[in-house]
Nucleic acid binder design. Structure first.
Lengths: 141, 141
DNA sequence: ATCTTGACTTGGACTGTGTCTAATGTAGGC
DNA sequence: GCCTACATTAGACACAGTCCAAGTCAAGAT
């Protein structure tokens, strides 16, 4: 994400303090915040930032392909800055936390031609479901 | 779904007109209605049915494993009555419509032990993304 | 350095999806 | 046919996200 701001400027985007802060919040590995979590962390650095701006900026980053939108359940979408490296998600069925994982094999090729019903298939994403170590431990109580 | 009502009764569920109607609406292949669509169709047969009851009944059917809950985007969840036959989903990126598909291979096995991060992994679901024939055609206009 | 302007941000209202509650109704055992 | 615990109802509520009109500001022009 480090040079993201430069890339944005290269595409004609104004560099505002708000966009800088949102990009900084999303920097890192295994980061999968909800919009509200991004807002909370952004507010810590820039108290007057508004919810609408966080949503706008996240939407722009997604449209540019810099950030992935992940909706693993009916709850809030999460934003994954690791868009430039192919990976899938392992989701805790209990608390909703997410880990990036890298399965083996080519998933798209597992869908035979006869199962495509005329769709132009462009991608496949896998969600592995399970219970994370924290939740497995807590359950005993 | 035909004997679903009997199975429900066997598990101590009361057979009410509302539950019957919701189960009837969900009967069929390639059915993936949202809760609101279920409500609309149920209302056509039983005008006084309430939204809360539709949500309650859908939740019960999911808890019993008779129906699958599918959330492929941030929009409304969809309900898939085809829970007793393993399958995955092919989703149109444009209109959100869903087809059931049956890919080859065992998806769970594609996640190596070293990529499980202490999770107890219980399942894998694949969402294939593409453009459905209807949308591909419409786009030309 | 200052001006100008159109893009950006803001707060708050609004929408869609889903949940909760207290009051009322009813399926099924007796 | 009665009883009662479970189911249903309408509407209030909660959460995630979108929209809008008004004010602000980044950055190119001067």
């Amino acid at each position: 994400m480090s040079d993201l701001l430069e890339r944005l400027r290269g595409r004609g985007f104004r560099l505002t303090a708000q966009r800088r802060v949102v990009a900084e919040v999303l920097d890192g590995d295994h980061v999968h915040y909800t919009a509200d979590e991004v807002l909370a962390r952004a507010t810590a650095r820039l108290p007057e930032i508004s919810r609408a701006t966080v949503y706008n900026t996240l939407g722009e980053l997604v449209a540019l392909g810099e950030v992935l939108e992940v909706s693993t359940d009916g709850r809030a979408k999460r934003y994954d800055p690791n868009a430039h490296s192919a990976h899938q998600h392992l989701v805790c069925s209990r608390c909703g936390s997410i880990r990036d994982v890298r399965p083996e094999g080519d998933l798209l090729s597992t869908l035979p031609e006869g199962e495509r019903y005329g769709f132009r298939v462009s991608g496949a994403e896998v969600t592995y479901r399970g219970i994370c170590p924290d939740c497995a431990e807590r359950r005993g109580k």
